[in-house]
Lab assay of single mutants.
Amino acid sequence: VTTYKLVINGKTLKGETTTKAVDAETAEKAFKQYANDNGVDAVWTYDDATKTFTVTEMV
């Protein structure tokens, strides 16, 4: 189990959160659900070296 981080650069929601998951795909599903629940529709990137997902909402 690995800890993954999500950085949110949204128009109305900004911040960071983490989740523990067995792999990046599982973490991504959890983070996308979190973003969807909070109304963030954005572009996703992932950095495997830092285990960090970044979501940037387009203006």
Rank of each mutant, 00 (worst) to 15 (best):
A30L: 14
V59F: 11
E57W: 11
A49T: 12
Y34L: 08
T26F: 04
A27R: 01
T2C: 12
I8R: 01
A24M: 14
N36E: 13
K32Y: 05
K11E: 08
T17H: 14
K5V: 08
Y34H: 04
A21G: 02
T26V: 05
N36M: 14
A42I: 09
L6G: 01
F31T: 00
T12G: 12
G39C: 10
T12Y: 14
T45R: 06
E28N: 04
K51I: 01
D47T: 03
Y4F: 10
V40Y: 11
E57R: 05
N9G: 04
A35G: 03
K51W: 04
G15C: 15
T50F: 03
N9C: 14
M58D: 11
L6R: 00
K5A: 03
G10K: 07
E25H: 09
G15E: 12
G10Q: 05
Y34F: 12
A42P: 07
K32R: 14
V40C: 10
V59G: 13
N38M: 15
G39D: 07
V40S: 05
F31D: 01
Y34R: 03
T26G: 06
K14E: 06
T54K: 03
I8E: 01
A30H: 14
V7K: 05
D37H: 09
F31P: 00
L6P: 01
W44S: 01
G10F: 15
T50A: 05
T54E: 04
T26S: 13
D37I: 15
A21H: 02
L13R: 10
A42W: 15
D37F: 15
D48K: 06
N36D: 09
K11W: 09
D47H: 04
E28F: 15
A35T: 13
N38V: 15
D37S: 10
T50E: 05
G39P: 04
V1F: 13
D37Y: 13
G39Y: 12
V7D: 02
T54C: 06
D48Q: 07
T3V: 12
V7T: 03
E28S: 06
A35Y: 15
Y34I: 09
N38Q: 13
Y34S: 03
A30G: 03
E57G: 06
D23G: 02
V22Q: 09
E16R: 06
T2H: 14
K5N: 05
A27K: 00
A35D: 02
D48M: 06
T45E: 11
A27V: 02
E25L: 10
A24N: 04
A49H: 07
V59N: 12
K5H: 13
T17S: 08
K32S: 03
G15N: 08
A21K: 01
E28L: 15
A27W: 02
L13I: 12
Q33E: 09
M58G: 10
A30T: 14
